[in-house]
Amino acid sequence: MEERVRVSNLNAYFGNTRALKDINIAIKAKIVTAIIGPSGCGKSTFIRCINRLHEVVPNTKVSGEVLLDGEDIYSPDVDPIEIRRKIGMVFQKPNPFPVLSIYDNVAAGLKLNGVKKKDYLDEIVEGSLRRAALWDEVKDKINASGVSLSGGQQQRLCIARCLAVKPEVLLFDEPCASLDPISTSKIEELILELKKYYTIVIVTHNMQQAARVSDHTAFFLLGEMIEFGKTQEIFTAPKDKRTEDYITGRFG
């Protein structure tokens, strides 16, 4: 399997607090990699380092390497804007732009970067909404506000918004944390569909979810990566005692 993202000796800081400690991980292309672990273990911080979003928070620092297709995204001549276009992100709470219509929410990444051609935008918007399994539900109210949708629809709108800028990697930061079970299962189906085209990393609190959607799983604890391997192996035969304790619900 082709390798898409390689992280080596990654450390992340909030002020003087070291939130991630020497993380090493290789993320393979076109599969789903799940990051699990208790609250505050650095899962979200980790994926926010992959699209250079960690650094937009004041007083933060990153050291180490993150290679995207062999190139270090933290090298000084790399523009973080380019990186973020290649690596999309879906957040914990659906966050469509409240002042924009459904159409403009999806087109935002292109429009605000100067793309003006109407035909092209129409095509991308429809394609992205179709891929996010939302087109049929919104095609008749494409000019309604993005926040008029239900929570689950809003989250799929956010996914469509990501897809519109044609990323290679998709990062999901607990995408179902604020959704009901039906919306959750729709998002999970969608993730399984999307992995045909994209490399996916998903942070989740829900271990069943990790088991259902992912091929690889990494277990994080207190800023360290404890164990990383095939999901099946992590869940059935963990090598580390701490992973076993977490998975069997002894803490976390």
Partner: peptide
């Protein structure tokens, strides 16, 4: 909310455009 700024930045929209248009 900060999540809106981050959503825009995560789409590869520049800081200037994020501030003005979002």
């Amino acid at each position: 909310p900060r999540t809106l700024r981050e959503a825009a930045l995560a789409l590869g929209i520049s800081q200037f455009r994020t501030t003005v248009s979002i």
